[in-house]
Each structure stands twice: as structure tokens, then as C-alpha cells.
């Protein structure tokens, strides 16, 4: 298993795609703002993977079927989050998100939210354990003001309270 990596350099095609995407967002969504991280934070893992408590986070709109679905009708998106107990049966999870094709995730949630796979890796000893709670948002937020001022701090606190060392994240 190699972990060679390179700093990501935009190719001209990627630059054009990014500019197109940003232009579409700015025209199509009232109140959209282009927010980027001014500095990248860095917290290295302080113990071997086999001792780490791992949790899941997704912006793919995953939630318990019994929970309130995300609001996909609001043109300004939905900045709220949902809690998912990691002891849940994955057949009780659903996706509410209208900005990516979740046909496959409807048939098998593990291709976006790999809770069953994480349990197998825990049983094999690759990770130390799974935190009791995972969290989810619906990633469509043209103006991330509420998301960053209210949801992100709440999520950081919630993940700390679960005792997680590492958060595995997928985006919708």
C-alpha cells in the first residue's frame, strides 16, 4: 500500500471546470458566497490506527428514516445536522439530497456511508473501535454562514464528546 502523493496542481481543464462551476453557483443561487479556508488546520493522529476510535461524517444527506429529512425545497439549502447512532441497522438509513445521484446509495448506503464496512474493519482489528455517534449534513449550502457559525462548532463538540480520534468523511 503506497501513500505517495503530490500537491494538487490545477490542469487548465480543471481550472476551466472550477470557474464554470463557480459561475453557475453565483448565477443560480441567490446569496451564494465563495468561502475558502484561510489556513489549513492540522491534527496528526497521535496513536496507531489499530487503537483509534473512528467515526463517520457525510455531507451526503444521510439520516435515520425515523428522523426529520433534510429540507431540499429551500433554495438556500439546509444547514442543520442529523445524529446517526453507529449501532443502527444500515437498512434504517435514508438519503435526502437533490444535488448528486444517490441511486446507488439508496440500494446500498455503504457506498457513501460505509458503516457496515467500518464494523468489519473493527472486527478485523484494523481500527480500535467505532464512536457511538456519527453525524450528517446535507451539503447544499450556497451561503455557508449558518453552517460555519452554528453547525460546524456543534459538530466539533459532538465528535469530541463521542471520544473519536479520527473522522472519516464523504461528501454529497
Amino acid at each position: 500500500m503506497t501513500t505517495q502523493h503530490r500537491p494538487w496542481q490545477f490542469t487548465p481543464d480543471e481550472q476551466r471546470k472550477f470557474d464554470d462551476w463557480m459561475a453557475r453557483i453565483m448565477v443560480g443561487h441567490t446569496g451564494a458566497t465563495d468561502v475558502r479556508n484561510p489556513a489549513i488546520h492540522w491534527t496528526p493522529l497521535h496513536k496507531p490506527l489499530s487503537q483509534c476510535i473512528v467515526s463517520l461524517f457525510t455531507t451526503g444527506g444521510v439520516h435515520l428514516r425515523s428522523d426529520t429529512p433534510f429540507d431540499i425545497d429551500n433554495p438556500h439549502g439546509d444547514w442543520t445536522h442529523r445524529q446517526i447512532p453507529t449501532a443502527a441497522d444500515t437498512r434504517d438509513l435514508a438519503v435526502t439530497h437533490s444535488h448528486y445521484n444517490h441511486v446507488d446509495a439508496d440500494r446500498d448506503i455503504n457506498c457513501m456511508f460505509p458503516l457496515d464496512r467500518l464494523r468489519e474493519l473493527r472486527d478485523q482489528g484494523l481500527i480500535g473501535g467505532i464512536a457511538p455517534m456519527a453525524y450528517s449534513i446535507m451539503g447544499f449550502n450556497p451561503d455557508p454562514d449558518n453552517l460555519m457559525s452554528r453547525t460546524a462548532p456543534a459538530l466539533a463538540q459532538a465528535f469530541q464528546d463521542t471520544g473519536a480520534d479520527l473522522i472519516f468523511m464523504t461528501c454529497g
Partner: peptide
């Protein structure tokens, strides 16, 4: 990336998947 960076800044290690690396 915004939420991930915030959580990493709170002292938790994170790893994210992306299909739009740019």
C-alpha cells in the same frame, strides 16, 4: 472542506473522500 477544516482545528484528525479534487 470548510467543515472538515473546522473539526480538524478543534483537535480531531480527519480524512475526507472527494471525486472533485480540484
Amino acid at each position: 472542506g470548510l467543515v472538515q477544516n473546522h473539526i480538524e482545528g478543534a483537535g480531531l484528525s480527519t480524512i475526507s473522500m472527494t471525486v472533485q479534487p480540484h
